[in-house]
Amino acid sequence: MATKACLIAVSIVVGVSATQWPTGAGADAETRRAFPSIPKPHDNRDVVVDGNSTAPGSYGGYSATDVAAWERETYKLVLEGARVFHDANAIGSGIGMSCGTCHPDGAGTHPETYPKYQVQIGRAALLRDMIDWCSRQSARGAALGADDPRTRALEAYLTAQRQGATIRYGKH
C-alpha cells in the first residue's frame, strides 16, 4: 500500500510539473465549471496607470495587462488547489478520500485561524501543517511537505474560499 501510494504521489508530482505552464487553452475550465463559486482574486484595476498602451516607466505603475496576468496566475493557483482538493488520487489517499469528501467548498478548514495550537498535531501549527496531517491521517495519503506544489495549491484554494474573513490567529 505504501508503495502504491508512493507511486501515485510521484506520478502526480510529475503530472503537475508537466502541466505547470498551461497556455490558457482552458486547462482549468472544467474546475471552474465544477466550482463556479470560488471567488476571483481581488480586483486590482485601480492600480492601472495610464491605460494599457502607454508605458508608465520603470517603477510606479502597472498596465491593465499586468493586472490581468496577476489575476490569471493567482486564480489558476487557486483552481489547481480546487482540483487537488477534490481528487483522492492527487494526495495519494489509500482509502479513496479526498479533502473535499469531508470539506465541501473547504468548509470547516478555517484558514483564517492559523497559526494556532492544533490538538491533533500536538503543537502550534500553520495551515500547511494541518493540510499535511489531514492528508496523512484523515485520507491516509501522502505526506505533503511545505513546498509540495499540492500543499501550495491547497493553501491557495482554502484561503481564497475565505475571502473577506477576519484573520483571528489562534482561534478554536
Binding site: 490538538v119 491533533q120 498535531i121 500536538g122 503543537r123
Partner: peptide, 8 residues
Amino acid sequence: CATCHPLN
C-alpha cells in the same frame, strides 16, 4: 501518538 500524548 502525539494527539493524546502531546510533547511540547
